[in-house]
Simulated assay, not measured.
Amino acid sequence: MSDETYALAHLDELERLEVDDEGLTWRPVRRHFGIGAFGVNAYTAAAAGARVVEEHRDDAEELYFVVSGRARFRLGEDEVEARAGTFVFAHPGTLRGAVAGEAGTTVLAMGARAGEVFEPSAWEESFAAFGYLRAGDADRGRGLLEDFAARHPDDWVARYKLAVFETLAGRHDAALGQLAQAAALDPQAAEYAGSDEDLAPLREHPGFGSAIAGQARPGGEPA
């Protein structure tokens, strides 16, 4: 058992990673504290009208708290305005997302699946990895995704994320190798690769067809 009894940090002291072209800033709260029972992260939008919670449907229970500014949430077919100090709870299966009502709007998101042991997901690793890539630290980002893929060898999404990462990093041969592994694990990888804008440079590569067929040479290179 750890001798630590508590940890304390101000929001502004947490690591800040820019994770999209709209300037969305992610603060990895769960990773900072090493929380293992539930997910918790903070997001700050750079401008009014920019997303502050990515629209998605999940079977987790998720609670959002508007820390500052104001946000317009989409919850199923409804849209609700939430000013600073407001909690928003999304039941499992509900489509959810939010855009900022003003620049600097910050939303804290917390969640987990009821009755299940919490497991950090691939998206969290990819958020961190692509954030480091944007910040110019490709090696650190690549290491996160490679470690996750090694721990989850049957997860095609992990390999697919690595393919996207390597494409954006300009390492197209490495990207094709990762894409081939993803497609060999699940045909969905090929479907996504056919229209994913981030993989557009790969579709011009002569090895793309072999990669989405899940064919790779020893060492991970596409056949």
Rank of each mutant, 00 (worst) to 15 (best):
G141N: 15
D139G: 14
Y132R: 15
A135P: 05
D139P: 04
D147G: 11
L133V: 05
D147K: 06
G136T: 06
W156C: 02
G131E: 00
D137N: 01
D147V: 03
G143E: 08
A135M: 13
A129P: 05
D137L: 00
W156T: 03
F127Y: 13
G131Y: 01
G131P: 00
A128I: 01
S126F: 09
F130Y: 01
Y132D: 15
H152E: 08
Y132W: 13
R151W: 09
A135H: 14
F148S: 14
E146R: 07
G136C: 08
L144K: 13
F148V: 09
G131V: 00
A128R: 04
D154H: 08
A138W: 02
R142Q: 13
G141Y: 08
R134Q: 14
A128P: 01
D137E: 01
A129K: 05
R134K: 13
A149R: 03
R151P: 03
H152N: 10
R134M: 06
D154Y: 07
A149Y: 03
F127K: 14
L133N: 07
R142W: 15
A129S: 12
F130T: 01
R134H: 15
R142D: 15
F130A: 03
G136Y: 09
W156I: 01
D155F: 07
H152A: 12
A135K: 14
R140P: 06
G141V: 07
A138C: 11
A149N: 05
G141S: 14
F130V: 01
R140K: 14
G143S: 12
F148P: 06
D137V: 00
A149L: 03
P153T: 01
G136H: 09
F148C: 08
G141E: 12
G143D: 10
F130E: 01
R140G: 11
D137M: 04
A138R: 07
F130I: 01
D154L: 11
A128K: 06
E146M: 06
